[in-house]
């Protein structure tokens, strides 16, 4: 057998094959969507306010930022790593974008270019986590905790005690202007999800991230160097957080250091609830989107039926512990090491 000629390679298109899902529907794949429908139904019955069209729009708009963050974190979780850097990176990019577009602090008016710079800043910080992981061999939850602190520090430095208010009409418009009933922000989130899903399915980066979570040592035996892919995944995640920081700034109309507060945990919750295993190798963007909707519907629904919004974090804490326990328990062994 000889190497395939380029001519052969170009003659594709015939039947575009795609990775086939597992045969049969397992509970772990079908569970989250069913849970979403059930929870939606329960709240719709309980609360007349919940089942209005405008509230459904609200839910989708409210899910936008979380969806973007979750897109990033899903790739990291898929590798079996963890990422706690979202609050720091989002804070840094939120302040950065607020200072780069038209604002009350300086004369900048870079518009979309400013947005791009903020996203790049996020990517750079994400890259830092990845590098610390593969070069210094520090576990990812420590490197990302550190990078989160660095991001918050950078944000505080740029913040310099005076809140930058955004006066840029484009960025402000993202949060208020609507297209087909949904805010532009929501459409941006939809685009992110699509990009994420395509990356996961059709790019080497996405497939290798998936494989790293499945059996990292096998990749080494097959001659694949995993380190660059790990750094790339953290960089991509950072870019998503950077964009999420921009979106939060658009929603608030101002750059805040705390723009990303709590998003790390919410995103992990959403991904885990959607069926991503913390040990890696299972789940994906579309799973995570279901998780994001689940978390958002739950949050919104609880508020609609009169539960204090302060409980939000507590409910997320409970469901993430429960979801992880449910995923881990069937594989429990005696003499198993749990760190």
């Amino acid at each position: 057998m000889t190497t395939t000629s380029p001519a052969d390679a170009d003659r594709e298109v015939v039947h575009a094959g795609r990775p086939r899902p597992r045969r049969g529907i397992s509970l772990s794949d079908a569970g989250p969507p069913i849970a979403l429908v059930v929870i939606f139904g329960v709240f719709a019955v309980l609360s007349p306010d919940f089942r209005t069209v405008s509230n459904v729009q609200n839910v989708l708009d409210a899910a936008a930022v979380l969806a973007v963050v979750t897109c990033g974190i899903s790739f990291v979780l898929m590798m079996g790593s963890i990422d706690l850097s979202a609050p720091g990176i989002m804070g840094a990019s939120a302040i950065a974008v607020a200072l780069l577009v038209a604002n009350n602090r300086n004369d900048n008016d870079f518009g979309l270019f400013g947005v791009a710079v903020a996203v790049l800043l996020g990517a750079a910080l994400g890259c830092l986590s990845g590098l610390a992981l593969v070069v210094l061999k520090v576990p990812s939850f420590m490197t990302t905790l550190g990078v989160s602190a660095v991001g918050l520090g950078v944000a505080t430095l740029m913040f310099a005690g005076v809140q930058p208010n955004v006066t840029d009409p484009m960025l402000e418009g993202w949060a208020v202007e609507r297209f087909l009933g949904l805010a532009h922000l929501t459409w941006i989130a939809v685009a992110c999800v699509l990009v994420g899903a395509l990356v996961q399915r059709y790019s080497r980066l996405g497939r290798y991230a998936f494989a790293i979570g499945g059996a990292e040592e096998v990749l080494g035996l097959s001659g694949v160097r995993v380190a660059p892919y790990k750094v790339a995944v953290f960089t991509m995640a950072g870019a998503f957080y950077g964009l999420a920081g921009v979106l939060v700034t658009s929603q608030l109309g101002a750059g805040l250091v705390q723009a990303g507060r709590g998003y790390d945990f919410s995103a992990i919750t959403a991904a885990v609830v959607g069926g991503t295993l913390l040990s890696g190798g299972r789940g994906g963007i579309l799973h995570s989107v279901v998780g994001v909707l689940l978390v958002t519907v739950l949050t919104n629904g609880l508020v609609q039926v009169g539960v204090s919004p302060y409980w939000q974090g507590g409910v997320q804490g409970l469901i993430v512990v429960a979801a992880v326990a449910a995923a881990v328990l069937p594989q429990r062994r005696r003499n198993q090491v749990t760190k």
Partner: peptide, 25 residues
């Protein structure tokens, strides 16, 4: 952590957000 074999950082991360919520309420 011990009974359900959940990694400690997840248990305590969950705990963190539950405790914050209780404190806020």
């Amino acid at each position: 952590h011990v009974l359900f074999r959940i990694p400690s950082f997840i248990v305590t991360l969950g705990g963190m957000s539950i405790f914050s919520a209780i404190a806020l309420v």
